[in-house]
């Protein structure tokens, strides 16, 4: 029972992790991207489009090739999410539009596009494709050896990919010159510019990469969490992922632990099998926890725990 609960927690946790890692990278460049829920929706849209294109090409879904079934939806997902990130960055960085407004619009837009496109092109056969996504990467006998392997080693590859991406992002941000420059851009773009860093380039690349990672969350939601069935609840998960960025103090390493904690609370009503009003109240715990973290962070005014100093502020070179 407990093992099933933790496995369920890890299932949900990965969605939060994709979303928040992507958002952390974007925010480190000084872009407060409120469009992350919309970008996750766009990622899911890409996955539907890619999946349907592949299904049309092979005619009989049962003959699907495992590798192609994964890679084609994934590429389309990255393409859609990346293009949405590019649109956001173009509006905010080149056209100097307000970040909050642009982000919220992208969320509205993405949340509309996902059901619209997937209703239009249909989703028959996606559930067959989705089975490729949760093929375990370790052999079956090994996975079910004991409780440890059952919990941690019996997942599809996207689960491990999310954790690897978070760790790599942490290392790049903290240990490399690129990471240092990116942090400089987020803290003070004018200073970074003066020291010879191409601020625009960093903002564009960070936003697009961040959006691609968030977009993978959409793919994960569609293919792994819902087994290819169309559910349109990504938006609220996306907002929790944005909240998780605060919870993890802009650190992808803490985000791994943070997403686990969030998922733990998220799955709690199922575990203690409560229903009705009590279940509704328990499912609010992640939001309460985020608020408490926000307050605690503001009480202890440490430099390391603060958001990037120029977060949400556009940088216009000629205003220097």
């Amino acid at each position: 029972m407990f093992v099933t609960y933790i496995r369920g927690v890890i299932r949900v946790m990965i969605l939060f992790l994709f979303g928040s890692t992507g958002e952390i990278i974007t925010e480190k460049s000084g872009h407060l991207n409120m469009g992350t829920p919309g970008i996750m929706c766009m990622g899911a849209t890409g996955a539907v489009v890619g999946g349907v294109i592949y299904l049309k090409a092979i005619v009989d879904p049962t003959t699907a090739n495992g590798f192609l079934a994964i890679i084609i939806p994934m590429l389309f997902c990255l393409l859609f999410a990346g293009l949405t990130g590019l649109l956001y960055c173009f509006l905010v960085n080149t056209l100097q539009c307000n970040q909050n407004v642009t982000g919220l619009t992208i969320t509205t837009f993405g949340a509309g596009v996902f059901p619209f496109v997937s209703n239009m092109i249909g989703s028959d056969g996606l559930s067959i494709l989705s089975s490729s996504f949760y093929i375990r990467i370790f052999p079956k006998a090994f996975c079910e050896a004991n409780w440890f392997t059952q919990i941690f080693l019996s997942h599809g590859f996207l689960v491990y990919l999310a954790i690897i991406i978070a760790v790599v992002a942490l290392l790049i941000l903290k240990k490399t010159r690129v990471g240092l420059s990116l942090r400089a851009v987020g803290e003070s773009p004018a200073t970074a510019d003066a020291s010879g860093i191409d601020v625009s380039k960093y903002k564009y690349i960070a936003t697009i990469i961040g959006s691609c990672i968030s977009g993978l969350g959409g793919l994960y939601y569609l293919m792994v969490m819902n087994n290819g069935a169309l559910e349109y609840n990504i938006e609220s998960f996306g907002w929790l992922a944005v909240a998780l960025v605060i919870f993890s103090l802009w650190n992808p390493g803490i985000a791994i632990a943070g997403s686990f904690v969030f998922a733990l609370f998220y799955q709690l009503p199922k575990f203690i099998s409560s229903s009705g009003a009590a279940a509704q109240i328990i499912s609010l715990i992640p939001y309460f926890v985020t608020i408490v973290v926000l307050i605690v962070v503001s009480l202890f005014n440490k430099r390391e725990t603060q958001p990037p100093a120029s977060l949400g502020v556009n940088y216009f070179r000629e205003d220097r």
Partner: peptide, 25 residues
Amino acid sequence: YSSTVSNVLTGLFFLLIISSTFFVN
């Protein structure tokens, strides 16, 4: 076709209005 088109078009409407602020400023 699906009535969710209204969300898409509202989003598009706002995206265009947002872009217009660039040409104003």
